[in-house]
Design a protein around this nucleic acid. Structure first.
Length: 256
DNA sequence: ATGGCTTTAAAATAAAGA
């Protein structure tokens, strides 16, 4: 089965592109971020028409995550990241699909840094680590995907210098990501591409796509029970070059 | 680069993104 993650940057603006990708690539599970719509305006029926059932956690204007499953009903296991009752941003959802726990997240960007948005990002990452530790303890296959907004290492960006002051690659952001991995998660794309140079995001500005000025911030993390089943992982890069594309490309992992 | 585009919301600009 193939599990994909795609920051689509607006469901309505991107709907034809999204339906096209689903039909061409047919992932078993498609996790979406930045659906940018309220719960009652998510176009679930458009996905049902092509055979996908969905759960979603929307928010008017920005954020928002959804999990789509080919030919089966995702069973919602959690909505929202625990640890802060004051946090109302829609960035986290979990579902059970075919014996797997799927975690879909949209981690806060954190810019500008330093500042309250960066503090929120780091606090969110600690809350995430706490929740993922609970999931590791279940000793079940768990797949954690999404837009992490973290460039894990220097090999994951076209230019360290261009990004050096960005929240995505501050030492605090990287350390928090590393702490999560060290708990026992496998970064699927990094494991299969240890040399780096794999991008999942290209800015709309400054001809970043044309110059291949990208970086890797969309990640697929596997619990040990899921990592045992890892067959392949990759980026559907060509979708970034299409008309009205998102600034992210889909990423995916294939499990036995 | 002190955001060079692009989205949403909403009716002209503003916020947010990475």
């Amino acid at each position: 089965m193939r599990i994909a993650s795609f920051n689509i940057n607006g469901t309505r603006a991107r709907l034809p592109r999204l339906l096209e990708w689903l039909q061409e690539r047919r992932p078993t599970v498609a996790c979406l971020q930045e659906i940018k719509c309220a719960d009652d305006s998510f176009p679930a029926e458009e996905f049902e028409k092509i055979g996908y059932r969905a759960i979603w956690h929307g928010q008017k204007g920005f954020n928002g995550v959804a999990i789509l499953v080919d030919g089966a009903e995702p069973v919602e296991a959690r909505r929202g990241l625990p640890g802060d009752p004051e946090d109302v941003q829609s960035r986290y959802t979990e579902a059970d699909v075919h014996g797997l726990r799927i975690v879909n997240l949209y981690l806060p960007n954190g810019n500008p840094q330093p500042g309250p948005k960066f503090d929120y990002k780091l606090a969110w990452m600690e809350r995430l680590r706490a929740r993922l530790t609970e999931l590791l303890a279940t000793e079940r296959p768990v797949v954690v995907v999404g837009d992490f907004n973290v460039i894990p290492e220097d090999k994951d960006t076209f230019s360290v210098r261009a990004m050096q002051n960005d929240a995505l690659m501050q030492p605090e952001s990287r350390d928090a990501y590393r702490r999560i991995l060290n708990d026992g998660w496998t970064d699927a794309i990094d494991t299969l591409n240890p040399q780096g140079g794999v991008w999942t995001f290209w800015d709309y500005q400054a001809g970043a796509w044309q110059r291949d000025h990208g970086f890797r911030i969309d990640h697929l993390l596997l619990s040990p029970e899921a990592a045992d089943r890892l067959k392949a992982a990759g980026v559907d890069k060509e979708y970034r070059g299409r008309e009205k594309a998102s600034d992210h490309a889909p990423v995916w992992v294939e499990l036995a």
